Amino acid sequence: QKPVSAYALFFRDTQAAIKGQNPNATFGEVSKIVASMWDSLGEEQKQVYKRKTEAAKKEYLKALAAYR
């Protein structure tokens, strides 16, 4: 399975908490809140997710090379 983006990892980590705080929110509303949070996130915090994405990408490429 291809690795997901840094934003997708952040979304996955954040979505449940947002939904818990806003139980009646639609998926679209939750998405807007998470997107706003991502935009206001500091670069250092974004780097945490970007590093996770890079590590997953390297593992994916290694597994793909081994498969071929």
Rank of each mutant, 00 (worst) to 15 (best):
Lys62Pro: 08
Gly42Trp: 00
Leu61His: 14
Ser5Cys: 10
Asn24Thr: 13
Pro23Arg: 03
Ala56Gly: 11
Lys46Asp: 01
Ala56Asp: 11
Asp13His: 06
Glu29Thr: 03
Ala56Met: 10
Glu43His: 06
Glu44Lys: 13
Glu43Arg: 06
Glu59Val: 05
Ala8Gly: 07
Thr53Pro: 05
Glu59Ala: 09
Gln15Tyr: 15
Leu41Met: 14
Phe10Met: 01
Ala17Leu: 10
Ser40Met: 08
Lys19Tyr: 08
Val34Tyr: 00
Pro23Gln: 06
Tyr67Arg: 15
Glu54Thr: 06
Arg68Ser: 06
Lys52Ala: 04
Asp13Asn: 03
Pro3His: 10
Glu54Lys: 09
Leu41Gln: 01
Ala55Cys: 06
Leu9Met: 11
Ser5Glu: 11
Thr26Pro: 05
Gly20Phe: 10
Glu59Met: 03
Lys58Trp: 04
Ala65Ile: 04
Lys32Pro: 00
Gln47Gly: 09
Asp13Thr: 06
Lys19His: 07
Met37Tyr: 01
Gln15Lys: 09
Gln45Phe: 04
Leu41Ser: 02
Pro3Ile: 06
Tyr67His: 15
Ser31Gln: 10
Asn24Phe: 08
Asn22Thr: 05
Thr53Trp: 08
Ala63Gly: 15
Val4Tyr: 06
Asn24Cys: 05
Pro3Cys: 04
Ala8Glu: 04
Lys52Ser: 08
Leu9Trp: 07
Ser36Thr: 13
Thr26Asp: 13
Ile18His: 00
Val30Asn: 00
Trp38Asp: 01
Gln15Leu: 09
Thr53His: 14
Lys52Pro: 05
Ala17Asp: 08
Glu43Val: 09
Ala63Glu: 15
Gln45Tyr: 04
Gly28Thr: 11
Tyr60Asp: 14
Gln21Ser: 11
Ser5Thr: 14
Ser36Lys: 13
Ala65Pro: 14
Val4Cys: 10
Arg12Leu: 02
Ser5Asp: 14
Ala35His: 12
Tyr67Thr: 15
Lys19Arg: 09
Phe10Asp: 01
Gln15Phe: 12
Glu43Cys: 08
Gln21Cys: 06
Ala66Leu: 12
Pro23Ile: 03
Ser40Tyr: 05
Glu59Lys: 12
Phe11Thr: 07
Ala55His: 12
Gly28Asn: 14
Lys57Phe: 06
Asp39Gly: 07
Ala8Phe: 05
Ile18Lys: 00
Lys58Met: 10
Asn22Val: 08
Lys50Ala: 08
Glu29Trp: 08
Ser31His: 06
Ser40Leu: 06
Phe11Gln: 08
Ser31Cys: 08
Thr53Glu: 15
Tyr7Ala: 03
Ala16Cys: 04
Gly28Val: 09
Lys2Phe: 10
Gln21Pro: 01
Ser36Gln: 15
Ala6Ile: 01
Leu9Asn: 01
Lys52Gln: 05
Ala55Pro: 08
Asn22Ile: 03
Ala63Trp: 07
Ser5Trp: 03
Tyr60Thr: 15
Ala63Gln: 14
Met37His: 06
Leu64Asn: 15
Glu59Ile: 02
Lys19Ile: 07
Leu41Tyr: 00
Ser36Leu: 04
Asn24Gly: 14
Ala16Tyr: 02
Lys19Thr: 06
Ala65Trp: 10
Arg12Ala: 09
Pro3Asp: 15
Val30Met: 08
Ala66Gly: 14
Leu64Met: 11
Ala56His: 03
Phe11Val: 08
Trp38Lys: 01
Asp39Val: 06
Ala8Ile: 03
Asp13Tyr: 02
Ser5Asn: 14
Arg51Ile: 07
Gln15Trp: 07
Pro23Val: 01
Ile33Phe: 03
Thr14Lys: 13
Ala8Pro: 03
Gly20Thr: 13
Ala55Val: 13
Gly28His: 11
Ser31Asn: 07
Asn22Glu: 03
Gly28Tyr: 03
Ala35Arg: 14
Trp38Gln: 03
Val4Asn: 12
Leu61Lys: 15
Ile33Asp: 01
Ala55Glu: 13
Gln21His: 07
Asn22Tyr: 09
Ile33Arg: 08
Gly20Ala: 14
Asp39Trp: 07
Glu29Val: 02
Ala55Phe: 07
Met37Asp: 03
Ser31Tyr: 08
Val4Glu: 15
Tyr67Glu: 14
Asn22Cys: 04
Ser36Ile: 07
Leu64Ile: 15
Glu59Ser: 08
Gln47Met: 09
Ala55Asn: 12
Leu61Glu: 10
Thr14Asn: 05
Leu61Met: 08
Ser5His: 01
Ala17Cys: 05
Trp38Ala: 00
Lys32Leu: 04
Glu59His: 01
Gly42Gln: 08
Ala17Ile: 12
Gly28Arg: 14
Pro23Asn: 06
Val30Ser: 02
Phe11Tyr: 05
Gln47Asn: 14
Arg12Thr: 08
Glu29Pro: 01
Thr53Lys: 12
Arg68Met: 06
Gln1Lys: 15
Ser31Pro: 00
Gly42Lys: 11
Lys62Phe: 03
Met37Gly: 03
Met37Arg: 12
Ser40Asn: 12
Val34Met: 03
Ala63Thr: 12
Val30His: 01
Tyr7Phe: 04
Ser40Thr: 14
Leu41Val: 05
Glu44Trp: 03
Ala6Met: 05
Arg12Pro: 00
Ala6Lys: 04
Gly42His: 10
Thr14His: 03
Met37Asn: 09
Gln15Cys: 07
Arg68Trp: 05
Asn24Leu: 05
Gln47Trp: 09
Gln45Lys: 13
Lys52Ile: 02
Gln47Val: 11
Phe11Pro: 00
Arg12Asn: 15
Asn24Asp: 11
Glu44Ala: 09
Leu61Phe: 07
Tyr67Gly: 15
Leu64Tyr: 08
Gln21Trp: 04
Gln45Ile: 03
Glu44Phe: 02
Glu29Met: 02
Lys52His: 06
Ala55Trp: 05
Glu54His: 05
Ala56Gln: 11
Asn22Asp: 04
Glu44Pro: 07
Pro3Val: 08
Ala66Pro: 15
Glu29Phe: 03
Gly28Pro: 13
Ser36His: 10
Gly20Leu: 14
Ala17Thr: 13
Leu61Val: 14
Gln21Glu: 14
Lys32Arg: 11
Ser5Phe: 05
Arg51Glu: 15
Tyr7Met: 08
Arg51Ser: 11
Ala25Trp: 03
Ala8Gln: 14
Phe10Leu: 01
Lys62Asp: 12
Gly20His: 12
Phe10Ser: 06
Lys62Asn: 10
Leu9Gln: 13
Arg51Asp: 14
Asn24Arg: 10
Lys2Pro: 06
Thr53Met: 11
Phe11Leu: 07
Ala25Lys: 08
Leu64Gly: 15
Asn24Val: 02
Tyr67Pro: 15
Lys58Gln: 13
Leu9Ile: 15
Thr53Arg: 09
Lys46Val: 03
Ser5Arg: 04
Glu29Leu: 01
Tyr67Trp: 08
Arg12Tyr: 08
Arg12Asp: 03
Gln45Pro: 02
Gln1Phe: 10
Ala8Trp: 06
Lys19Met: 13
Arg51Pro: 06
Glu54Asp: 11
Pro3Trp: 06
Ala63Leu: 04
Leu64Glu: 15
Thr53Gln: 12
Glu29Asp: 07
Lys32Thr: 11
Gly42Ala: 10
Val34Ile: 08
Ala6Ser: 10
Ala8Cys: 15
Thr53Ile: 09
Ala6Trp: 01
Ala55Ile: 08
Ala63Pro: 14
Asn22Arg: 11
Lys46Met: 04
Ala65Arg: 11
